[in-house]
Structure formats: C-alpha cells, structure tokens
Nucleic acid binder design. Sequence first.
DNA 1: CCTCTTAATTCGTGCGACGAACTATGCGCG
DNA 2: CGCGCATAGTTCGTCGCACGAATTAAGAGG
Lengths: 145, 145
Amino acid sequence: MRSSFLVNAVYAESGREHGLTPQQGQLLCVLMARPHGMSELGAMLKLAKSSLTGLVDRTERNGLVRREPDPHDARAVQVALTAQGSKVAREFYTETCRRIEELPGSLSPADRGTLADLLGRVVLDNEVPVVFLEPDEGGPAAREH
Amino acid sequence: MRSSFLVNAVYAESGREHGLTPQQGQLLCVLMARPHGMSELGAMLKLAKSSLTGLVDRTERNGLVRREPDPHDARAVQVALTAQGSKVAREFYTETCRRIEELPGSLSPADRGTLADLLGRVVLDNEVPVVFLEPDEGGPAAREH
DNA sequence: CCTCTTAATTCGTGCGACGAACTATGCGCG
DNA sequence: CGCGCATAGTTCGTCGCACGAATTAAGAGG
C-alpha cells in the first residue's frame, strides 16, 4: 500500500463508479498518453516488478489493458489500453479531474504550492492529471521517498 | 482499503518508524483514550466486523493490544492497549501530531475549514488526533459516507 | 420457555505490496 | 564468436487488509 494518497482518495471515489480500484484507475490514466513498458510503469507508479505484474494482470483480466510485444526488445512488453479501457479511462479521468479541481477551490497559489510540496507524491511525473500546478510550471516538484 | 486518507499518509510515515502499519497505528490511537468493544471500534474505524477482527488479531499478535472479557456482556470483549502498546502509541501519536501540525502551516482558517470539509473522513469522531480544528470548535464536521 | 437479535469469530475470496528465484533476451568485451 | 553479466518480466510465497456469508454463544423481551 504505497499509493499516492490524495489522488488515491479521489481515484477511489471516481473509480467506484467504474468498478475500478484506485490502483487500476491510476494505471489507466498513465496509459492514456501512450502504451508503456513494465519497467516504465513500475518506475512511474513506484511499484515493485511483481506488484505491477499483478496489477496489470488484474486490469488485463478486466479487459481494460492488453500486453503487446515490444518491437525493440523481445524480453519486453508494452501495456496498452483496450478500446474499452480507453473509454473507461476517459470517463474516469474526466471525473477525477473534476473532483480534483473542486478540491483546492479556496486555496491560494502559495497554499497550493505548500500542499504540492507536502503531498508531492500525489502527482506523478507524467501526463497523469496534474494538480496544484501553477499554469506556468512545467512539472510538479515531486519528492522521491 | 477504506482508511482515512491524509491521516493515513501521516500514519504511514510515523508508523514505519515503529513497525506499525497505518491501520495498526490508528487502532492504537483510538485505544489510547480507553479500551473499546469491537463493535465500537468497527463503527469508529468504519470497518466490517471480520476486518476488524483481523486487524486486532495482528495487532494483538504484535503484543500491542489485548482482548479482555467485558464485565457487562459475556459475548463481548474489550480491546485494550498493553504496556508496550501504550508506549508505542504514545510515541506514534506524538510523532503523528507533530507531522500533522506541520501540514497546514500556511493554511488560513478558511482553507483549513475547506480542507476539513473535503477531507472530512480524515478525522474520527473521538479522541484521535484532531486536526484542522479551530480552537473554539467542539468537533470536526465529519461527513459520513 | 421461546423467538429473535446481537457480539465476535471463522472462512473464503479478492486486492495490493514485497522479495527471491527463474527464464529468456540483450549488451559489451576479449 | 563466445562468454559473463545485466535486464525484462513472470512466478511463487508471504503478509496485510477489506468484504460478505456462515456460525456459535449470549442477551433481550414477550
């Protein structure tokens, strides 16, 4: 249980409506941008290899993602969204962003920055919903732990 | 996985230092005030009966709590901290409060209220560390889900 | 006494996280 | 080219945690 926490909360709420666990929802969001290899996903989601294998297994079993051969490396696979997965991801993402946008409604930019720092793990270093960002920031100040 | 989220995050960090999972840490904090019956704990921690049994089992196995007969009801037990559990709880609680106090450092009272509303589940309706409170409030505006 | 309710546990199950071990593939060097 | 080492991903075993169904013993009320 090393999920990012606040996004996880929101994911949990959004996900319930789509039959997704927070972890699966997060995986879908990451894959919306493009397919990823398992190592990439593991690094992004901060999961051990075997944990990720399990997550992808379950999500694949739900018909939301599929494993494809990697054309550049026969050892590797690319994990991609299925058509169904794309649909669910879009709905989930939209719902999640809506909920997250409501969250810091009354927070000043400084407070957002403070929370972003404190909750650095909330935001992944990629195209996943980025919150607590000022419009001119290029990326979150993610703190590795 | 229906923990309260932000406190859970902080619990996780504090707990790691004491070999506690967030759930176990939370249980200890609840029990600091006084022993509780399982039904009480279940309601407070919002856990199904069997889930709570498991949590208490594991925490008991770690020597941190013990089950005692309830003098008023032979069906029931009271869950109490052991001496070791009290010690760990105190340290954990202190550490957790410290971390939580650092959290909203730059939040205005209005923002605290907003976050308290949004993260209502963060705070339990009892003597567990109460955060985001104005000094003159009697209790958190907990939102049941 | 009887019926219904309740407290807590057991059991089965799913999810998620980890590390060790493993197999197949890739890389770099002599 | 062959070899040793590294890597990608999976399997296996394990633990923690959450849930519902089923169960047993005790409690409450008529």
